[in-house]
C-alpha cells in the first residue's frame, strides 16, 4: 500500500525538529530510519499529518567512549552499532543485539533511537538497553532530561517520551563481559517470539523480549539470582508476574515456557562468558 498523504519537513537540527513537533505534537511524527514508522504508514495503521524527517540532523550518529559509559547517538544505525569498535569492546551485548535486528537491509537503515522510541515489546534493542540499565537522553521544549531505561518503556508502543520530545542519546554503562542474548524465532528475519538479554556484570539484570505489552525485566529471576539461586532455579521464575500475550505465533503458556528455557541458557552462557 501507499501511505496516506502527509506534509513532509526535513529537520536540519534538533531545534528544527522540536519546533515543528511543538506546533502539533499529536499529529506530528519523527522519521529517523523509518523502519518502524513507514511499515505502519503503508498499512495505514499510522496516518500522521506531518512527518518530520530527522534522518539528516548532523551530529546524532556516533558511538563514543565516555569514560564510565558509552554514549550512542540516537540516529546511529543498527549496522554501525553492530560493527562499532567501541560498542564491541565496552557494550558487546548491544553490538551483538544490533546485529540481530530484522535483516541486513533493515539494519542498514533502522536507528537505535527510532527503535527505542517506537517502544515495541517485540523489538530486541529495548531489552538490551533495559538489561544494560541504560539512560535515555531526551530533548524537548522544557530542555534536556535523562530517563532510566527501567522507566522508559511504559506500554505497548508507549514510552516515557512526551509527544513533543525527541530521543537524542543513549548512555550505556560499560559491561564488557558476562552477557548473553537469546532470541527464539521461527525465521531469522522475524520478531522474536521470546528473547532474553542477560547481564551478570554487576547486579544481575535480565530483560525479556515479547513477554508482555512492553519490554520487561525478569524480576523473579533477578531476585532469585541475588539470593544465590543457580541458573536453572532462577530461570524457573523468569515469567513471574508477567503476562505475555497469545497470538498467531505462540500461546502465552508457550512463551512462559520458552522464557524459562531461554533465560536458563542465557544465564549459563553469560556466566561462562564472565569466566
Amino acid at each position: 500500500m501507499i501511505p496516506a498523504s502527509f506534509e513532509y519537513r526535513r529537520a536540519g537540527s534538533v531545534e528544527d525538529a522540536l519546533g515543528w513537533l511543538a506546533e502539533d505534537p499529536d499529529s506530528t511524527k519523527l522519521l529517523a530510519g523509518g523502519h518502524s514508522l513507514l511499515p505502519l504508514m503503508k498499512l495505514r495503521l499510522a496516518t500522521p499529518g506531518v512527518l518530520v524527517d530527522v534522518g539528516r540532523v548532523p551530529g546524532l550518529s556516533y558511538v563514543r567512549d565516555a569514560g564510565d559509559h558509552v554514549a550512542i547517538g540516537a540516529l546511529t544505525r543498527h549496522r554501525d552499532l553492530e560493527i562499532s569498535e567501541v560498542a564491541r569492546a565496552f557494550v558487546p551485548l548491544l553490538a551483538h543485539v544490533a546485529g540481530q535486528v530484522g535483516d541486513p537491509q533493515v539494519r542498514h537503515r533502522g536507528t537505535i533511537g527510532g527503535s527505542l522510541a517506537h517502544g515495541d515489546p517485540a523489538s530486541d534493542l529495548p531489552a538490551a538497553v533495559l538489561a544494560l540499565d541504560a539512560t535515555m537522553v531526551a530533548d524537548g521544549p522544557r530542555g534536556r532530561r535523562e530517563i532510566a531505561a527501567s522507566d522508559f518503556f511504559r506500554g505497548f508502543l508507549e514510552t516515557a517520551l512526551e509527544p513533543d520530545e525527541m530521543l537524542t542519546e543513549i548512555r550505556v554503562r560499560k559491561a564488557p563481559s558476562g552477557w548473553a542474548f537469546q532470541k527464539f524465532n521461527r525465521r531469522a528475519q522475524d520478531w522474536a517470539i521470546v528473547g532474553v538479554a542477560a547481564v551478570l556484570d554487576g547486579d544481575p539484570r535480565v530483560a525479556l523480549v515479547n513477554m508482555g505489552s512492553t519490554t520487561v525485566r525478569a524480576r523473579g529471576t533477578e531476585e532469585a539470582l541475588a539470593a544465590g539461586a543457580d541458573a536453572a532455579e532462577a530461570a524457573d521464575r523468569a515469567s513471574e508476574g508477567l503476562e505475555p500475550s497469545s497470538d498467531l505465533h505462540a500461546s502465552a503458556e508457550y512463551r512462559r515456557h520458552l522464557a524459562t528455557v531461554l533465560v536458563r541458557r542465557a544465564l549459563v552462557e553469560a556466566a561462562a562468558a564472565r569466566g
Binding site: R186, R187, A188, Q189, D190, W191, L248, H249
Partner: peptide
C-alpha cells in the same frame, strides 16, 4: 496471515 511477516515463507536462513 495476510502479510509475509505473518505467513512464514522460509528464507535461505531456514
Amino acid at each position: 496471515t495476510t502479510t509475509f511477516a505473518d505467513y512464514l515463507v522460509p528464507a535461505a536462513s531456514e
